[in-house]
């Protein structure tokens, strides 16, 4: 049984509505999740699904219309300033004051968090080293590369040694090298300080790096489990092959019995089948019968992205069904 001390972030039945042109729009519906201390939680979902909104409601940056939410035991509506003092946040369109240098930015956030002057020096030096920014202290933040800007944002969000950080798409638009470095930093934080991390990301591979993943779609959580657990939610096994005639092959394969779903991947087809050996043979036969050649037929492990697509597609079918 998890005691209250062990839970870093909690949300129960969160509801959020926005006033639209034709009346109120429900943007979040019945969001329930729990993040234990030291865990990394990934909130994954397509554009407009409600990732940022969820994060903002939990932090108290947006008013909630129903349900409960709290960070480190502090309620999002009532104890907003307690939350802000004990958590770090990187907004999606975060922008640190571009005219301030790296050092000035760090001092700025240190002052905002009330860190006394004598402790600031050591803390800032430590964070700069951690983020690899020690040589850039006098550069204006606006002139850092994209990856460095994100690292600076991370450093500033950690200045007050929070136990929880919430990151809204922190690596968007950043190249893979910097992304990996960023995630290595996060990994270090988790390993060395037991930091709890709540991250929204569109990158499925980052979802793999989380302990727990929540799939959010149209304002609802359609799945919440470990990455392995979510992948197990996908029914069937996954085959991959590259057909010569794409559209025709797709239609044929989709129509076969035992083929639960067909996804596309560039020039390849990904059919989900209930029985690997049997259906593989059947697919090969069906293709040959139509005179369609193919290459590279093999079984692969579904990754987070396939699981996501599978679940979302099923959800859509259920709604439109």
């Amino acid at each position: 049984m998890t005691t209250t001390n062990e839970i870093a972030i909690s949300a129960q039945g969160l509801v959020k509505r926005f006033k639209g042109r034709g009346g109120a729009v429900t943007v979040l519906e019945d969001i329930t999740l729990e993040v234990k201390r030291g865990e990394t939680f990934g909130l994954i979902g397509p554009d407009g699904a409600g990732k940022s909104t969820t994060t903002r409601v939990i932090l108290g940056l947006l008013r909630r219309d129903g349900g409960r939410s709290s960070v480190l035991g502090h309620d999002s509506m009532r104890d907003v300033y307690m939350i802000r003092a004990e958590s770090g946040y990187i907004a999606q369109q975060f922008a640190l004051p571009a005219d301030l240098t790296v050092m000035e930015n760090m001092r700025f956030f240190a002052d905002l968090h009330g860190i006394p002057a004598k402790r600031q020096k050591g803390r800032i030096a430590e964070l700069l080293k951690f983020a690899g920014l020690t040589e850039f202290t006098s550069r204006p933040a606006g002139r850092l590369s994209g990856g460095m800007k994100k690292k600076l944002a991370l450093a500033c969000s950690l200045i007050h040694e929070p136990q929880v950080v919430l990151l809204d798409e922190p690596t968007l638009g950043v190249d893979p090298v910097s992304r990996r470095e960023f995630w290595n930093l996060l990994g270090n934080l988790r390993a060395e300080r037991g930091l709890t991390i709540f991250v929204c990301t569109p990158y499925m591979d980052e979802a793999e790096r989380c302990n727990q993943v929540g799939l959010i779609y149209k304002g609802r959580l359609i799945a919440r489990d470990t990455p392995a657990g979510i992948k197990k939610m996908v029914p069937g096994r996954l085959l991959e092959f590259k057909p010569a005639q794409f559209e025709t092959a797709r239609k044929i394969v989709a129509g076969l019995t035992g083929v639960l779903q067909v996804q596309t991947y560039g020039a390849m087809l990904h059919p989900f089948v209930d029985d690997l050996e049997l259906r593989r043979k059947e697919i090969e036969q069906a293709l040959t019968a139509q005179g369609i050649t193919w290459s590279g037929m093999r079984a692969i492990q579904p990754r987070m992205e396939e699981a996501f697509i599978n679940l979302v597609t099923r959800q859509e079918e259920a709604e439109n069904g």
Partner: peptide, 24 residues
């Protein structure tokens, strides 16, 4: 130039389907 930045996986795949159709 980075045509799918920030877009959800389903749309990204469909987008790449379009790219492939064009290439064909």
């Amino acid at each position: 130039d980075e045509p799918t930045a920030g877009v959800d996986p389903i749309s990204r795949r469909e987008f790449w389907g379009l790219i492939y159709a064009m290439a064909k």
